[in-house]
Write a protein that binds this DNA or RNA. Structure first.
Length: 335
DNA sequence: TAGAAGGAGACCT
DNA sequence: AGGTCTCCTTCTA
């Protein structure tokens, strides 16, 4: 527990090595951005170059439930898809002895390449659909609050509206007063540290949400409307999507939630076409922390999370793989 | 020592 | 009532 996360070190994006990377969502190329968050180096994100995988991580924070629709209809488990799209083929024999060294799943090289290609394709689909859903959600919020989508255009009262809405949506403590008389431009120019100074309790979370809005605005400008496809879908097994209008409904552990954690590097998918839905928790403390944020349970730890996971055994949602390993679980019905 | 497993009770919707 | 959290004990690697 509490150890460094080996899964993070294998990722191409250096910022993910930061322990608090989960709450720092940069989406912009540092050469092109104008928001004034100098401490957040960002990889480029263009229509040609899909949204960085780890950005999914932050988009997840916009929802009170996961994104069944995002992986609906895909041939491969979303866990695999998320991993495959990090930009580099994963070579992790030390992380996946079950599969790689014991002859499961990825056998011939052709199969491996086909699998990787499929995973990359799946990730692109997930990314574009997540982005579409984020933009849709923001659009709804804008209409509801009667504010501009671009935070830079917000007046101080718009800022207050947005903060109130965010507090309500994500059950944050009341922090609006800490940001009084700040315009959207002021807010955009503030670093995460400055957010935390004004609101030690959840300044980081608020900063992350603002970054999502800023990023969405930027992506909207960059991506032609037809490029983002929203894929609505019905609920499936334990992975029913619940949007903001359904707040208060149970939040379940689900393959898509784990898939998004994959994007953050806290979980490594070990699945293949023959062993779908298997994932390894690389950093149990980090996953527990993220789950705690997700469930608004600051006291969450891996012991409690694992107890929850074991509850899913009974429901036939999660099980231990045939060859049991520590921190390795398998979704019985991966999306 | 961390993780796995499961019992039991509390809390919330 | 069901889902989840929390605390606990016991066992294992």
């Amino acid at each position: 527990m509490g150890s460094a996360s080996p899964g993070l070190t294998a990722l191409p994006h250096s910022r993910l090595t930061r322990p608090d990377a989960a709450l720092l969502p940069p989406l912009r190329d540092p050469n092109t951005r104008s928001w004034g968050c100098p401490e957040s180096p960002s990889p480029p994100a263009t229509p040609e170059q899909p949204l960085p995988a780890f950005c999914l991580h932050y988009f997840d924070m916009l929802y009170s439930e996961d994104i069944t629709w995002a992986t609906k209809g895909m041939g491969e488990p979303s866990q695999s898809g998320a991993q495959g799209g990090r930009g580099e083929p994963q070579k992790e024999p030390e992380q996946c002895p079950i599969i790689d060294s014991q002859g499961f799943g990825l056998g011939a090289e052709g199969d491996l390449q086909a699998s990787l290609h499929l995973e990359e394709h799946s990730l692109e689909q997930v990314q574009s659909m997540v982005l579409g859903e984020v933009l849709k959600d923001i659009e709804t919020a804008c209409k509801l609050l009667n504010i501009a989508a671009d935070p830079a255009d917000w007046s101080p009262s718009n800022v207050q509206k947005w903060i109130l809405w965010t507090e309500h949506q994500y059950r944050l403590p009341q922090i609006g007063k800490s940001f009084q008389e700040l315009s959207g431009k002021d807010l955009c120019a503030m670093s995460e540290e400055q957010f935390c100074q004004r609101s030690p309790a959840c300044g980081d979370i608020l900063h992350a949400h603002l970054d999502i809005w800023k990023s969405a605005t930027w992506m909207k400008e960059k991506i032609a409307p037809g490029d983002v496809r929203y894929c609505g879908g019905d609920a499936s097994w334990a992975d029913n999507k619940v949007d903001s209008s359904c707040a208060g409904q149970p939040i379940h552990l689900s393959p898509s939630w784990w898939a998004l954690r994959v994007a953050g590097g806290a979980v490594t998918p070990l699945s293949s076409s023959s062993l779908p839905g298997i994932f390894k928790i690389e950093d149990s403390a980090q996953v527990a922390r993220l789950w705690g944020i997700r469930k608004n349970r600051p006291a969450m730890n891996y012991d409690k999370l694992s107890r929850s996971i074991r509850q899913y055994y009974k429901k036939g949602i999660i099980r231990k793989p045939d060859i049991s390993q520590r921190l390795v679980y398998q979704f019985v019905h991966p999306v």
